[in-house]
Design a protein around this nucleic acid. Structure first.
Lengths: 154, 154
DNA sequence: GTTTTTGCAAAGCTTTTGCAATCCG
DNA sequence: CGGATTGCAAAAGCTTTGCAAAAAC
């Protein structure tokens, strides 16, 4: 069976308006992913899993989750927005693999302190920071090396 | 006369291929702006100034400048890309006013060191970082306060 | 029974690309 | 000349929106 998926859905979904099946499915899928994913990719997953949710609903739900503070959003290099379920209330930063999307929380104390200091000393109000670390994770890097080897001849 | 505009153009333009009038105009306009600006806004400025450069040329030139390290690019909240002429060769971070676009370079040593350490310890390859600080500059903040005061009644 | 939400299709955005005409060297 | 560059228009992506049908409370 396929019922071992996390489903802290019904409860959370109410936070963004009426509790509908679609919102529960979108949130459920987002939780399962455990990493950043684009609205379109999430929609593809839902459809593939036999949960035919409309793309606009996915967008609307994700936007609502972000506004409600239940999801984080970052901007990929190509401009796509990537969403991630936010389990706790803290503000974190991630190191994201540009190949496979794997995301790793990183220790962000120094950046937080740096940003706080700039906020204090700059005279600016309501200072926010967005920090995105990206790279190629060990797995993908290994695969890339193998491909490169093949390409230049065995 | 209107000849007091910075024009370190002809020389720099050569760095991205042939020195054409259009590229000189795009780079010239970007230098004059002294801050972040979108490709479309820059195009509007050029047209308004009687320099009818094609929008695609603006995009191509800005992209080339970024690749050549002569411009920085950041992503606005709405996904638009904002470009800025980079006078020196160093990699910098800015504090950008969300109201007026004013940008201030900030001291970024701590972030650089933090990012470098993550890169070293994570096992990821080719780690890059994007850091964006934004807020409301003192001028705009003052204006906003005045507006708020008026709104709630004098 | 009313009000919100959905889904589809169409539009909106920024950005990229194809290709003939044009310009630089 | 000959290849690089331009400009237009069309295409490509991601995201948003209008509106009738469906679902929630």
């Amino acid at each position: 069976m396929t019922d071992d998926r996390p489903q802290a859905t019904e409860h959370d979904v109410a936070l963004i308006g009426r509790a509908t099946q679609q919102r529960a499915m979108v949130l459920g899928a987002l939780v399962v992913v455990e990493g950043f994913i684009s609205a379109q990719a999430l929609h593809r997953r839902l459809v593939a899993d036999g949960s035919p949710v409309g793309l606009s609903t996915v967008y609307r739900t994700l936007t609502a989750l972000v506004e409600a503070g239940r999801a984080d959003v970052v901007r990929a290099a190509d401009g796509e927005r990537l969403f991630r379920h936010r389990p706790g209330p803290d503000h974190r930063h991630y190191l994201i693999c540009t190949e496979c999307g794997l995301s790793l929380p990183v220790e962000s104390g120094p950046v937080e302190r740096w940003a706080a200091r700039i906020a204090r000393t700059s005279g600016f109000a309501d200072v926010r920071h967005a920090v995105e670390l990206s790279g190629v994770c060990p797995d993908c890097d290994r695969k890339a090396d193998q491909t490169a080897d093949q390409a230049q001849g065995p």
